[in-house]
């Protein structure tokens, strides 16, 4: 498969990238790891006139601490997230989720920023970003602004990014000492999620003090399972208490139907997997 012809630039600073994007106009596209964009181009589902490659911008890489938050560069690969010690310590949910994406080849090329900007409801990384109340730092010709995850994902493949804006980094409030789990359900090992559940909980004295739960592929955007979170808080971390809380998982969701899974089955899965995700996180 051969994509339609396009121009290509590889700027080395974020400023240059933003400028290149705004000058090229509506028809241009950012390319990060290319793991979602290239299939689209090769199948000629899109034919952008210009690709702006972020691969040569050092500012977009790397993970650092900034007070109560971790700051993760948009070009950080899934593989780097799996293995980074800061992420393991302060946002283990992200490392566990990155581990569940596709296969090693894809994880070496695909990026955190690309996954979030692509905003595929079946993509794995948006749900934990939502669960952890991450903030997206975006930059355009008008400067930098911050969008909370809850406002970032707006629809299928659609985000709050405005034309000409680039996702630069993601600020993730630390969840040091929390237990986390990403429970992914798919049919073959390297496939996208049919449904998945991202869970992070803080247990204090055997009881759940705080809980964050978000669902993958249960609607046009990742869905925060607020009623599950509420039902969990203050409860003993026991299997039956967790199962009771997880019964709320499908509330307010509108999952898709396709050959692998219809909507009713997905709702059922959301409940089962939520219970498993929280149980696995707390070791219950």
């Amino acid at each position: 498969m051969i994509p339609a012809a396009f121009d290509y630039v590889a700027p080395t600073t974020v400023d240059d990238a933003v400028r290149a994007l705004s000058e090229a106009g509506e028809d241009a596209k950012i390319i990060a790891g290319g793991q979602s964009l290239l299939p689209v181009l090769r199948m000629r589902l899109a034919a952008p006139s210009k690709l702006i490659d972020l691969g040569k911008v050092p500012e977009l890489r790397g993970i650092r601490e900034d007070g109560d938050a971790l700051v993760i560069g948009a070009m950080t690969t899934h593989y780097e997230m799996q293995h980074d010690p800061l992420i393991a310590e302060h946002a283990s949910l992200l490392a566990l989720t990155a581990n569940a994406v596709a296969d090693p080849q894809v994880r070496h090329r695909g990026t955190f920023g690309g996954s979030l900007a692509h905003a595929d409801p079946a993509g794995d990384l948006p749900a934990p970003a939502l669960a952890l109340d991450a903030e997206m730092v975006v930059r355009g010709m008008d400067g930098t602004r911050t969008v909370p995850a809850a406002e970032f994902f707006t629809d299928f493949f659609t985000t709050a990014l405005r034309p000409g804006e680039i996702l630069v980094e993601v600020r993730v409030p630390k969840t040091t000492g929390w237990s986390a789990h990403y429970e992914k359900f798919n049919r073959v090992a390297q496939a996208w999620s049919i449904v998945a559940v991202a869970a992070a909980v803080r247990v204090e004295g055997g009881a759940i003090a705080e809980a964050r739960v978000a669902l993958t592929n249960m609607g046009s955007t990742p869905v925060r399972a607020t009623s599950v979170e509420q039902a969990l808080v203050g409860r003993e971390a026991t299997p039956s208490a967790i199962r009771d809380a997880a019964a709320h998982a499908a509330e307010g969701t509108s999952p898709p139907s396709n050959a692998d899974a219809d909507a009713e089955y997905r709702k059922h899965l959301a409940r089962v997997l939520t219970s498993r995700a929280v149980s696995a996180a707390v070791g219950a």
């Binding site: 979602s36 692509h118 595929d120 079946a122 299928f156 996208w192 396709n258 692998d260």
Partner: peptide, 8 residues
């Protein structure tokens, strides 16, 4: 849609 290449 919803299998295959994500939701594409």
């Amino acid at each position: 849609a919803g299998g295959g290449l994500g939701s594409m």
